[in-house]
Design a protein around this nucleic acid. Structure first.
Length: 425
RNA sequence: GGAGAGAUGGCAGAGUGGUAAUGCAGCGGAUUGCUAAUCCGUGAACCCGAUUGGGUUCCCAGGGUUCGAGUCCCUGUCUCUCCGCCA
């Protein structure tokens, strides 16, 4: 969320950012509201000052045993105009807040302009798409023929967009998650966290899922939200808190189930495990000083890419164009893995630098010893990686002609020494 | 689910209607000198002002009573204790 004071001081920069997002300039409207708000606030404060003075005088007079009727009468008059002005102040302040909470982050200067994902720009391509001397199958064909991937029972129990994994595939899902977590904690300096999957409204506002994207998440009858990503819980670790500069950067990772309604995705990726209401994901979140966020963004992206390299999977990394950039993001890299069955690259990670956008919403600040005041932290998040989609990638890339699946070397220890999932499951 | 207690600055902790004690820590300064002691100063957000500066708000949140609320009343949130239930 934007700071009104910043918009007041940088209206052109702000409007330019909105324009790149395809939005109308808003600074004039906001600044007008802000001026009216501040004027009313100043008036209110003058009245409060006068009221305080009179109250002190009344207190003094009463102690002396003297009459204070005149003063009490005057305060009564002030109070009436005060409540009117208070009303104006809070209405204007709500109007500004309601406006600001729905405004997306501005794109970084080096984010390319564009309409949609077609305009994203490739920044690197690593590894050669695997070739086969037979026709590679899709992941769900493989999983079902192994007898380890069950969409029918999942549909019977929960409906569409769910899956049940059995035996070696269930273990493979867990193996991938453990491998990712171990890499991020042992090699990349992240601290593993176990966090709630049910959260309050406030947390959803903090990271930007609310108020605009309520329909993309599930809500329980008791008012909890099911997290669509553990970015929500990890980033909110810093909410309503003033960290010490020496505590930064903070790096958290978590494996969690993620829940998405996929309301706008009807008819898209309807087969297989590509797009589910529930999926496992290992998430990375960094909370850093403003001057460090650009470098941290590169680091987090590298951490995610390394997982794919260790798994021997070909990928490409793109920088999202302005039209494809998420609501809270200042700049985003998507990592796309090669899927031989689909014969194309598919998104498997999204790494974003949110700058101070989330920290304003969450009121997440840091303080330097001996320096007056505090500053907002920068927050970053990245999937490292989406486990369900990584499972898809392993199946399609490591399949053999007979339908058996080779286990990538790095996962063998996590599979209890198993090197191949045999064709009969 | 039942009963009770509580929420005050980075931390600890007073304050039951008159405008937030005190201690510790951190930071700045002074002084004395030897691994430290002592003394002084120092909360946050916001508004006005060209600067020195002035002011408002903030005791979990939101309402209410009052000339005046940390203190009284109502609603909510969270924490703790005991009981019940439970993976």
């Amino acid at each position: 969320m934007f700071d009104v004071k910043w918009i007041r001081e940088n209206p052109e920069v702000f409007d330019k950012g909105m324009k790149r997002r395809g939005l109308e300039p808003l600074s004039e409207q906001i600044i007008d509201l802000d001026i009216r708000h501040r004027t009313a606030l100043t008036d209110l404060q003058e009245m409060q000052k006068r009221r305080n003075e009179l109250s002190k005088k009344i207190s003094f007079l009463k102690k002396e045993g003297e009459d204070a009727e005149i003063q009490i009468h005057e305060v009564g008059a002030i109070k009436r105009s005060m409540s009117e002005t208070e009303e104006i102040v809070s209405t204007l302040s709500d109007e500004i807040e309601d406006l600001l909470i729905e405004i997306p982050n501005t794109p970084d200067e080096d984010v390319p302009d564009g309409e949609d994902e077609e305009d994203n720009v490739e920044v690197r391509k690593v590894g050669e798409p695997k070739t086969f001397d037979f026709k590679p199958k899709l992941h769900d064909e493989l999983g079902v023929s192994l007898g380890l991937m069950d969409f029918e029972n999942a549909a019977k129990i929960s409906g569409s967009r769910f899956v049940i994994l059995k035996g070696a595939l269930a273990r493979l899902e867990k193996a991938l998650a453990r491998f990712m977590l171990d890499t991020h904690t042992d090699e990349n300096g992240f601290t593993e966290m176990y966090t709630p999957v049910l959260v309050k409204d406030e947390a959803m506002y903090g990271t930007g899922q609310l108020p605009k994207f309520a329909s993309e998440s599930f809500k329980t009858e008791n008012g909890y939200w099911l997290i669509s990503t553990s970015e929500i819980t990890l980033a909110n670790m810093a909410a309503n808190h003033v960290s010490k500069e020496s505590e930064l950067p903070m790096r958290f990772c978590a494996y969690s189930q993620c829940f998405r309604s996929e309301a706008g995705a009807a008819g898209k990726d309807t087969r297989g495990m590509m797009r589910q209401h529930q999926f496992g994901k290992v998430e990375l979140v960094s909370i850093v000083k403003p001057e460090d966020s650009k470098a941290e963004h590169e680091k987090i992206t590298k951490c995610a890419e390394e997982i794919l390299e260790k798994l021997g999977l070909a990928y490409r990394t793109v920088v999202l164009c302005t039209g494809d950039l998420g609501f809270g993001s200042h700049k985003t890299y998507d990592i796309e893995v090669w899927l031989p069955g689909e014969k194309r690259y598919r998104e498997i990670s999204s790494c974003s630098n949110c700058g101070d956008f989330q920290s304003h919403r969450m009121n997440a600040r840091f303080k330097t010893d001996g320096v007056k005041g505090s500053k907002y932290v920068h927050t970053l998040n990245g999937s490292g990686l989406a486990v369900g989609r990584t499972l898809i990638a392993v199946l399609e890339n490591y399949q053999r002609e007979d339908g058996s699946i080779e286990i990538p070397k790095v996962l063998v220890p996590y599979m209890g020494g198993m090197e191949v999932i045999p064709a009969n499951g």
